[in-house]
């Protein structure tokens, strides 16, 4: 695999007879400073605070008591619910989104349909919170539903799952379409002239080539559902089903410091899960870019 060294990235043409102000590798590092600063302030710092608070009791000393509540049955149920909701909606969203991506990828690359889909997906993948929950409530909600009066609208996970799938599908289209586009026409045609059927193409070529991208996308969708808060908060504000809801409840409850501590512990658990999931995503993505450039 080709490795680009920092000095190659930062190399700049320099006029003869003059020394560069910064050595080229230093220049490359300078370029990444704003990014590192951003990551530091908005990712590493909060993570550090969460970690610190989670292992310190209200008295200020080390206290792992709160962390051990991660394994308590009530805490575990939030994580199980979160995992269930994320797994169902990521797999469902990924499958439906992949089918949609296929339809878009095989269509006219300059066509109106494709542009509409991409613009639409870009908007819909960000669609969430109160607006989305309300949109579902007035179309299929149990009392005011225009299309049907779904009695299961407030059931977990099917009610909220349906709403989640609504933004999972467009996100899938956005992340999976590039991989779909990376499938070269020559591969299909080579398979065809070598005697392969459409089924054999997907079995031996298309499927294996897209598998890492698909799995990676499932992981990304999983993390997306796991960390979504506004939508589920708008859907149900009394009962906490999933971790983000309980974090919100803990933070806004009036019991005091111990709840804040619980929120930190839950957040720590979330960070751990998301870190694992996103590492998997990155590894799969690396394979995809090599094959489907």
């Amino acid at each position: 695999m080709a490795v680009t060294t920092p000095s190659e990235v930062g190399a700049q043409p320099v006029r003869a007879g003059r020394r560069p102000l910064l050595s080229s590798s230093r220049l490359a590092w300078t370029g990444t400073l704003p990014f590192l600063g951003y990551v530091g302030v908005f990712l590493l710092l909060p993570t550090g605070i969460v970690l610190w608070d989670a292992v310190h009791g209200s008295s200020g000393g080390f206290d792992f008591g709160a962390v051990s509540t991660l394994w308590s049955s009530s805490t575990r149920s939030y994580f199980v619910n979160s995992a269930e909701l994320s797994a169902i909606t990521s797999v469902l969203g990924a499958v439906l989104g992949a089918v949609l991506s296929y339809a878009v990828a095989t269509g006219n690359p300059e066509g109106l349909i494709r542009r509409l889909y991409l613009a639409g997906s870009g908007v819909l993948a960000q669609f969430g919170g109160v607006t989305l929950a309300f949109a579902f409530l007035i179309t299929i909600g149990p009392t005011s539903g225009l299309l049907l009066h779904a009695g299961w609208f407030y059931d977990f996970p099917q009610g909220i799952g349906l709403i989640y799938v609504y933004f999972q599908i467009p996100l899938m289209v956005l992340v999976f379409l590039p991989a779909m586009d990376g499938l070269k026409a020559q591969w299909r045609e080579a398979t065809e002239t070598l005697g392969g059927s459409a089924w054999q193409f997907w079995r031996y070529v298309g499927g294996p080539l897209l598998a890492p991208a698909f799995l990676g996308a499932v992981l990304l969708l999983f993390a997306n559902a796991l960390s979504a808060f506004a939508t589920i908060a708008a859907w149900e504000n009394q009962i906490s089903y999933v971790v983000p809801q309980q974090i919100g409840t803990a933070l806004s409850s009036e019991v005091g410091l111990s709840s804040v501590n619980q929120a930190d512990v839950l957040a720590l658990g979330m960070i751990a899960v998301v870190a694992v999931v996103m590492t998997g995503y990155t590894l799969l993505q690396r394979r995809t870019t090599r094959w489907l450039r």
């Binding site: 070269k184 020559q186 591969w187 045609e189 080579a190 070529v205 080539l209 094959w291 489907l292």
Partner: peptide, 8 residues
Amino acid sequence: FQAYSLFP
């Protein structure tokens, strides 16, 4: 084909 037709 012209190029890039091998299964990667």
